[in-house]
Simulated assay, not measured.
Amino acid sequence: MANPLQHRKPAADAGAPPHTPADRPYRLGILGGTFDPPHVGHLALARLCIEHLALDELVWIPTGQSWQKGADVTPAADRLAMTELAAAALQASGAKVRVSRMEVDRAGPSYTIDTVRQLRDEYGPEASLCWLMGADQLLRLHTWHGWQKLFEHVHLCTATRPRFELAALEGPVLEALAERQADTQLIQCTPSGRMWIDQTLAVDLSSTHLRQRLATGQPADDQLPPGVAHYIASHGLYRDARAGA
């Protein structure tokens, strides 16, 4: 008999869950970030991980209070709205795609460890949970609150940028990679604890650079998901250059 926890979904999810074969765990990809703004690099990362990790579901989670970036962040309501527009571009990707308010609605700073603990409780002990990140996040992983405990709840799956070198990683992260690196097949069939790095994604784009372009009036529609450019223009976002990652 299949373990009922294997297919459990959060109560907040709308609609019927996709069918999952009884002989493998449910596969959830988690794309978290400030999304200030979401851009085509985020879409490329999502599509790559949906394909290579054979995800059943992808959840985007905009940060609520970004404790590492201070107050100089676009209001959460705007970032949530832009993330929903970006996620809509993935609806035909083969995975269920949704946007979660869990960090926006949570009081206090948004710590990834709190988010993955909540998702593990919701999806059960057997589901394969993958935290998706770009190379910039991997380089700062050692600065995250409780980062080493993340492996108790999720896999860490990274797509690097062009010219990225693994040797640039801080010692503790490089040690974790040496111990935990795995292929996609192992990621797909185990709950957590592994690292996977893809070095084929040829997208070199950051939200910081994009904000700077928008602030100086340079065209950036080709770097934004459908609808996001219109939202930015209609709400007057990024009129002044701001610092931050």
Rank of each mutant, 00 (worst) to 15 (best):
R239S: 09
Q223Y: 14
Q181H: 13
G94A: 04
A135N: 03
L174H: 13
W144F: 12
D13W: 14
F35L: 05
A176R: 05
E103K: 07
G146D: 15
K149D: 09
L201R: 08
A159L: 11
T63M: 03
A245W: 14
T20Y: 01
S207W: 05
L139N: 08
V116R: 03
T112D: 03
L28P: 12
A81N: 02
L138W: 02
G41E: 05
V116L: 10
A81I: 01
P4F: 08
D36C: 04
H235F: 06
T112L: 13
A44Q: 02
W131N: 02
R47K: 11
A182Q: 08
T158D: 00
R8M: 10
V73F: 07
I197S: 01
R140H: 12
T34H: 12
T200Q: 12
H155F: 01
L150G: 05
T20C: 14
L169Q: 10
G244Q: 15
D56H: 13
Q137T: 13
W60M: 08
D221W: 01
Y26G: 12
G108F: 04
E179V: 05
R194M: 15
L214I: 01
L48E: 00
L139F: 02
S128V: 01
L169R: 14
L31T: 06
L138I: 03
L166F: 10
N3W: 09
A167F: 06
E57R: 07
L141D: 05
Q91R: 14
S234C: 12
L43G: 03
A229E: 13
G244L: 14
A54H: 09
D183R: 11
A95C: 02
L53V: 03
R101T: 12
L28M: 08
S206D: 13
R24T: 12
I50N: 00
A22I: 13
F151L: 05
W147G: 05
N3P: 09
A2V: 14
T112P: 02
N3T: 09
E152H: 03
D136M: 11
L156R: 01
G108Q: 04
L224Q: 07
T83C: 03
V203H: 03
D78Q: 13
Q199L: 07
A22Q: 09
L174C: 06
R117W: 00
V97N: 02
V154Q: 05
M1H: 14
V59F: 09
D121G: 05
